[in-house]
């Protein structure tokens, strides 16, 4: 009972909030509704008993990704509406509608054909994080490590891009730098 009520509540709210994200002309509304929608999506994971994934959704999308978006928004005047510059609303409508229909078909087809089956069903007596860890570090070990490597590369790249002037101090002037050190360790 409660699960169903919660599911429909969450679906309506999520769909509504993402609609606001797409349709609103105000950056702030778009951003906060997107963040709220992300929170509500984690609610679905909790409903399905996937606590770990729900929390990961919360930490990664709400805590990190959306906050980075928000950081980007700082460069705009967030209180003002933006003028959108649509070249052809027909193309936009067709493309987005087509993609939406395609996604629905992709996800609905296996359910309609009753051919949905878990390739690696969760083992009994394991908690959420444990079963995820088991699958990640056995079956999907190579993709997992490759993803880790990619993230490492991205991190190093980001550091190099951001840190070109890292050895120049913003607070210490050149004269101060040239002062010879008293016995070397002050």
């Amino acid at each position: 009972m409660f699960e169903q009520i919660a599911f429909y509540l969450f679906s309506v709210l999520t769909a509504g909030l993402f609609l606001v994200t797409v349709l609103s002309r105000n950056v702030l509304y778009a951003m906060s509704s997107l963040a709220a929608g992300m929170v509500l999506i984690s609610g679905f994971f909790f409903l399905l008993g996937a606590d770990f994934l729900g929390v990961v959704q919360l930490v990664v999308y709400v805590g990190a990704v959306m906050a980075l978006y928000a950081f980007g928004m700082m460069f705009f005047d967030a209180t003002r509406d933006i003028k959108e510059n649509n070249t052809s609303s027909k193309v936009v409508f067709l493309l987005s509608g087509g993609i939406a229909v395609l996604l629905v078909v992709i996800f609905a087809a296996p359910i309609l054909g009753n051919s949905i089956e878990a390739t690696y069903p969760p083992q009994e007596g394991l908690t959420n994080p444990e079963s995820i860890g088991l699958v990640l570090f056995t079956k999907y070990l190579v993709p997992f490590e490759v993803a880790a490597l990619m993230l490492l590369v991205a991190m190093v790249g980001g550091m190099i891009l951001a840190g070109k002037k890292m050895d120049q101090s913003l607070t210490v002037t050149d004269e101060e730098m040239n002062i010879p050190q008293k016995d070397g360790d002050k």
Partner: peptide, 17 residues
């Protein structure tokens, strides 16, 4: 207070100290 550390090693030592 000493001077501003000149080399990274100096500033590392200062931080540790």
């Amino acid at each position: 207070l000493g001077g501003t550390p000149a080399t990274p090693w100096c500033s590392f030592k200062q931080v540790m100290k």
